[in-house]
């Protein structure tokens, strides 16, 4: 049976891991390679690296860092942030990333999604969706959650599925940094609205939050940052909670 995945997220800026609180205040957390290796040993199922300052400052994701991480890691990892072209996708994959996450460029150049899927396979094309709650539904944001698009986030999810995305990385801007739990309604609306896996992101503060995002949110994977970076909970403890709640997880080594 396919396990639900626990994915620590390392937000990186200038080659260091940071965790954005509502995407704005950045607090330094440490060396990406060291953290990545630690999480892999602790039983993380995958890792995500997001170069969170890449798009606004036109900065390219750090290929060198990706190469170093790839040497240390024997679990899959995704890299995102500033991925703007097929050449960017190729560079990241060849440096050792398993998947690339495309956000802003998927909106400005939607044909990038089918082109990347045709060249490298859908399985390595992750589309990142940042969504802000409105009175009705959720609005799609780009540029790391800074720019409103006027598009409906759930409709956008269905559109990029049609375009060939292999997975969605869905972040609730409202919940991100709150440690008050995932936006379960948003996650469920997207997860039930598409036929591709959905990685829920934003709001994990306790192991129970991850239980809920799988059980009520119908997520296929859960991304979490500060819950792990702070040392408050280990991957093993979170997985024990999930197992006790009847959620299928891969046992820790």
């Amino acid at each position: 049976m396919l396990s639900k995945r626990i994915i620590p997220c390392l937000d990186v800026a200038g080659g260091r891991v940071v965790k954005g609180h509502h995407f704005l205040s950045l607090k330094d957390q440490g060396d990406p390679v060291t953290l990545a290796a630690r999480y892999a040993r602790a039983g993380a199922d995958e890792l995500v690296f997001l170069d969170i300052t890449a798009t606004p400052e036109a900065r390219r994701t750090l290929i060198t860092m990706v190469g170093k991480v790839a040497k240390e890691l024997f679990i899959p990892f995704t890299v995102g942030g500033g991925v703007a072209s097929e050449a960017d996708v190729r560079r990241l994959l060849r440096a050792g990333a398993d998947k690339v996450s495309i956000q802003t460029a998927a909106v400005s150049t939607p044909q990038l999604v089918p082109r990347a899927a045709a060249a490298f396979g859908s399985q390595c094309v992750v589309v990142a969706i940042d969504a802000l709650r409105h009175q009705q539904g959720w609005e799609l944001f780009t540029h790391g959650g800074r720019v409103a698009t006027g598009l409906d986030a759930v409709e956008w999810a269905q559109r990029v599925e049609q375009l060939g995305a292999g997975e969605l990385l869905l972040t609730s801007i409202d919940a991100d940094g709150s440690k008050a739990g995932y936006d379960l309604e948003l996650t469920r609306a997207v997860a039930d609205g598409v036929r591709i896996p959905v990685i829920a992101s934003g709001g994990a503060g306790r192991p129970e939050d991850l239980v809920e995002v799988f059980v009520s949110g119908h997520a296929d994977a859960a991304l979490a940052a500060s819950i792990f970076h702070s040392g408050r909970w280990t991957v093993r403890e979170v997985k024990e909670h999930l197992q006790a709640a009847g959620v299928a997880v891969r046992p820790c080594p």
């Binding site: 396919l2 995945r5 199922d45 859908s122 036929r195 591709i196 896996p197 994977a221």
Partner: peptide, 11 residues
């Protein structure tokens, strides 16, 4: 009937 791609750890 399950989601595709089949992504993740399976036995």
């Amino acid at each position: 009937a399950a989601k595709l791609p089949h992504v993740g750890w399976n036995t």
